[in-house]
Structure formats: structure tokens, C-alpha cells
Amino acid sequence: MRASAAEDAVRTRFERRLVELYAAEPDLHTIAREVFVSTELATDCDMVGYSEFHLGSGEFRVEYSHPDPDPERRATTTAAYLKHAGSHPFWGKDPAFFGERALRESDFFSDAQFMELPIAREVFLPAHAHRQMTTMIVQEGYAVAISAHRVLGRPAFSDAERDRMQELRGHVARVYRQALERTVQSMAPVERLIHLCPDLSPRQREVARWIAAGKSNESIAGLLGIRLDTVKSHVRGVFEKLGVDDRLGAALAVHQRPPFTQLPPMWTLAGSRWSPAGLRTTAAATPD
């Protein structure tokens, strides 16, 4: 097949996949696997990383399209990545540096230069990885990064693959916002609280839930079978942690505030993900 004909065929499959991406109507629980399929088709890569970076702390959570057969190595390389990420804005996933572009490691380093980088020697080469292309989507307080990876010996990502990755970014940005809305709309008030304010104690969640339902302190004391003074103490704690001054502010926070303002979704949604501390597993949020 001629090169142009082969490229046309890839383009046709890519456009068909974009339709499937929208049709899947993913929520935040399922969007990663939809991104995996789309990125693999767009870039002919061997692995895809789907990450969320907390902009305030620099921490991250990442899922991969294929499980690592050596989890201990993955834990070591994940920690090494954090150590060396600041050596270049490409590795550090700086949203301002990326803008709306898809960038490749070959845009900044020759093959010889890459092989000498500490991040290559400690992170990528032990996993037999070389090529990388990344694009980013900025959200409130965090950023989503999509990275395509190729193993040693494979060529650099082409300009056509970069252009498809860049185009895919815009579609994923829209689908992500829709997934965020679907996930939030499906949450009961008490579940929203778990994500909105993860440091609320179970009893504080119960109190906040009844505040949001318009119950008085006396009613809450009766519903929970606790003393009125105890309820008042929990109410003060709820106000402080939600950053509000009164019951109306608390109720509005529960019903109207986006639930992922303190931590990105991957910090509180159920699942097992790699982080600087290694593999972290978050249990499903359940009302108390």
C-alpha cells in the first residue's frame, strides 16, 4: 500500500474512532479506557499513560493501558520520574509549556542526548521505553495528561501522528468535560460530600447531609441519636472544612459546588493508580 494510501486509511479509522468516542458517553470512571483506544489508533504506540497532575502540589496519579509485568520496577521508576521531572518542562508536564500542543521527546532531544539523560537511564530505559508524545488538558486546579509511548528500537512519532494527537486532544477535552458533568450529576449529596471535602469525618458527613436537606440542629440530634451540643460541634467543623459561614453556604456547597475542587478525580474515585508513593488503591465512595 502506498504511503499516502496507508495514511488515508489511518485517517479514516481515526475519524471513525472519534465518532465512537463521543457515542460511548463515558463518565470519569470509564474515560481512561476510551482514551487508551483512541490514542493507540492515532499514534500507533505501544502503551498509553492517562494521568492527572495536581497543580498545587505537583503530585500525580496515572493509569496505563497495559499492566506492568514487574510492579516493583514500576514503583521504582515512578518514584524516579518524580525526582527528575523538574529537569525539563516536557518531563514536568508544565501546562503552560504544552499549551494546546502535542509534544514529542524528539522535539527537544536527539537520540544520543536522550540516552544520557538521568530520567531516561532511571525511568524509561529500564522499562525498555524510548519514544514519548504528550498532550495536556487543564482543569480547575489540576491537569490531565495523555502520553503515548513506544519501546526501544521504534521510530520517533511522525508529524502526522503528532497532528492526530493534537487533534485528539481537543476532542478528549470536550469529552472529559462531559464525563465530569455526567459523573457529578449521578452523585447523591452524601457522595458529593466525600469528594468535595475528603477530610470530613463520617459523622460530619452525616451532619452536612442533613444540613443540606434543611434540617435544624435539633432535628439532626434526633435523627442521629446524639446530643445537641455534639451536633453544634460537628456543624462548626463542617463549616470550617467547607469554608463557609452558615447553613445556607453549606447547603449551596453540597448541591452546587463542583466536587473535585480540593483534589482531582483520580485522588478520590475508586481505582488502583500509580503515584509518587507507589501503587495507591482508592475504595469506592460509600455513604455512611
Rank of each mutant, 00 (worst) to 15 (best):
F14I: 11
F14M: 10
F14Q: 02
E15N: 11
R16N: 11
R17T: 12
V19W: 05
E20W: 15
E20Y: 15
L21W: 09
Y22Q: 13
Y22S: 13
A23V: 09
A24R: 15
E25A: 13
E25G: 00
H29Q: 08
H29F: 05
I31F: 07
I31M: 08
R33V: 12
E34W: 13
V35A: 15
F36T: 01
F36R: 07
F36Y: 15
S38V: 03
L41I: 14
L41Q: 04
A42V: 02
C45R: 10
C45F: 10
D46N: 14
M47D: 14
M47K: 14
M47C: 06
G49C: 04
Y50K: 01
Y50E: 02
S51M: 12
S51Q: 04
E52F: 09
F53M: 09
H54P: 00
L55Q: 12
L55Y: 10
G56P: 01
S57T: 15
G58T: 06
F60E: 09
R61I: 12
Y64F: 15
Y64S: 10
Y64I: 03
Y64M: 12
S65E: 04
P67C: 05
D68I: 00
D68V: 00
E72T: 11
E72N: 07
R73E: 05
R74G: 03
R74V: 07
A75Q: 01
T77A: 10
T78I: 04
T78R: 00
A79E: 14
Y81G: 04
L82E: 14
K83Q: 13
K83W: 05
A85F: 07
G86F: 12
H88R: 03
H88A: 05
P89N: 11
P89K: 04
P89C: 13
F90G: 07
K93Q: 09
D94H: 00
D94C: 02
D94A: 07
D94E: 06
P95D: 08
A96D: 15
A96T: 05
A96H: 01
F97C: 06
F97G: 12
F98M: 02
F98N: 04
G99Q: 06
G99F: 11
E100V: 06
A102E: 10
A102S: 10
A102C: 06
L103H: 07
L103V: 09
R104M: 07
E105H: 05
S106K: 08
D107K: 08
F108H: 12
D111K: 04
D111E: 15
D111M: 01
A112C: 01
Q113F: 01
Q113K: 08
F114I: 10
M115N: 13
M115T: 11
E116K: 01
